[in-house]
């Protein structure tokens, strides 16, 4: 019997050999039928990307351009296909965004381009592609990653959207601040909202769930920052738009409630070490609108203070909030027309769009900063759960 001498790690070159006729099985098992909640949960982050890249390396090693082209086309088409099929599932989209980016980083890290080899170990440099320059395919993968990112934002927005108005505006977590006479029974505590309504906690839990999923998939930290910034933009824009359209939301107590909710969101950012990703800044218009609800609105000094404070709100938005402002009790007066005129005069030189509402469909441009991996390809083992027995470690 041939003695099966277990080969030591160092004998492997970090490639995976496969037969041309197995290419379809490869993309079927590794892409089309892989369940992010199934076997994929136990994989090292980015494993599918590394496996696909190791197969690509072997096709390059054979100097077989047809095999390289065919594999890349199959991989890209399969990822697009799975996202067409399950593009409304956040986990699936997040999983393939992370793996598409990892695959793109591998193509750069092992391209042989000096600029992408700075952090490589000598062994990793030995593993660079030897025959083909895949710069054009990198561009196609980058285009695909942008499409997947936008799909992820849409997925996430569909989940977050129903929570925002209820959680950020309607649900009151600060007891009694609305000045409503407490009824005989103690008001419900903040965390138990009426059936079916969302609270601020619902939003925070959902943000944590998104964040945990992306981390589990090995999403680049720089990309997670961009996703979180986009999430906060959507929360801030939807909340402000509703405040600008609803008289019942423009009161001193609502201003207090909104500032409390924003502070909880900022706490969440701090907790996730995401204070510098630009997310907090996207809430600035909402913060200023909440402050506007709480400051005095009578004298010229008040007008001066408001004009210098509300530098991220348009004149139309400031005027709208002042018009909608509803005194919380009989002792307080409404904002006078004269005062609003004063504000408009002070702001008439501003060069700004007359638009009132923020565009909640705005998606910030996404970038995928190069993120090399320290993982040594020759050490990668393929779990049997992936049913890829037809691949041979080389």
């Amino acid at each position: 019997h041939p003695v099966n001498i277990p080969r030591r790690e160092k004998d492997f070159q970090g490639m995976l050999e496969y037969k041309k006729e197995d290419e379809l099985k490869l993309v079927k098992n590794l892409i089309l039928e892989l369940k992010p909640r199934g076997v994929a949960v136990n994989l090292i982050p980015g494993l599918p990307a590394y496996i696909l890249f190791m197969c690509l390396r072997h096709a390059d090693y054979l100097n077989d351009d047809q095999k390289v082209r065919s594999l890349l086309t199959s991989v890209i088409n399969s990822i697009k296909k799975i996202l067409k099929k399950r593009g409304d599932d956040f986990e699936t989209v997040s999983f393939w965004l992370a793996n598409t980016c990892r695959f793109l980083h591998c193509l750069k890290q092992y391209s042989g381009d000096e600029q992408f080899m700075k952090y490589n170990t000598p062994k990793q440099n030995d593993h660079c592609l030897s025959n083909f320059d895949l710069a054009e395919y990198r561009q196609v993968l980058s285009d695909l990653a942008i499409q997947i990112y936008q799909q992820l934002i849409k997925c996430m927005e569909n989940i977050l959207q129903p929570m925002i108005v209820s959680g950020m505006l309607e649900h009151e977590t600060i007891q009694g601040v609305s000045g409503v006479k407490p009824t005989g029974l103690r008001k419900r505590t903040s965390s138990i909202a009426d059936e079916g309504t969302y609270t601020l906690d619902s939003i925070l839990r959902q943000l944590s769930s998104f964040h945990a999923t992306m981390c589990q998939h090995g999403t680049d930290p720089e990309l997670i920052k961009q996703v979180v910034k986009q999430q906060f933009y959507i929360i801030g824009a939807v909340t402000l738009n509703n405040l600008l359209l609803r008289k019942d939301m423009c009161s001193w107590s609502k201003g207090m409630q909104i500032r409390y909710n924003v502070s909880q969101l900022e706490e969440w950012l701090r907790d996730k070490n995401l204070m510098v990703c630009g997310a907090k800044e996207t809430l600035e218009p909402l913060i200023q609108a909440a402050q506007l609800l709480q400051v005095k609105k009578k004298t010229d000094e008040d007008a001066e203070a408001i004009c210098s404070m509300c530098n991220t709100l348009t004149t139309a938005q400031i005027v709208k909030v002042l018009n909608l402002y509803t005194p919380v009790n009989a002792f307080e007066e409404r904002v006078s027309v004269t005062f609003i005129r004063t504000i408009q005069n002070r702001l008439r030189d501003r060069k700004e769009s007359p638009q009132l509402l923020l565009d909640t469909k705005t998606i910030y441009p996404v970038t995928f900063p190069f993120s090399p991996s320290s993982l040594a390809l020759e050490t990668i083992q393929i779990p049997s759960s992936l049913s890829l027995g037809f691949l041979t470690r080389v």
Binding site: N77, G112, L129, F132, L134, A135, E136, V140
Partner: peptide
């Protein structure tokens, strides 16, 4: 050490063109 042979640039189709090259029947295509 001999200079590495220059790598051959593989021309890539665009994402849309790749779609045409779909390698398997699109079950869910109408």
């Amino acid at each position: 050490r001999p200079l590495p042979r220059p790598r051959i640039l593989l021309k890539a189709p665009t994402l849309a063109e790749m779609e045409e090259m779909n390698l398997f029947e699109d079950e869910d295509s109408p």
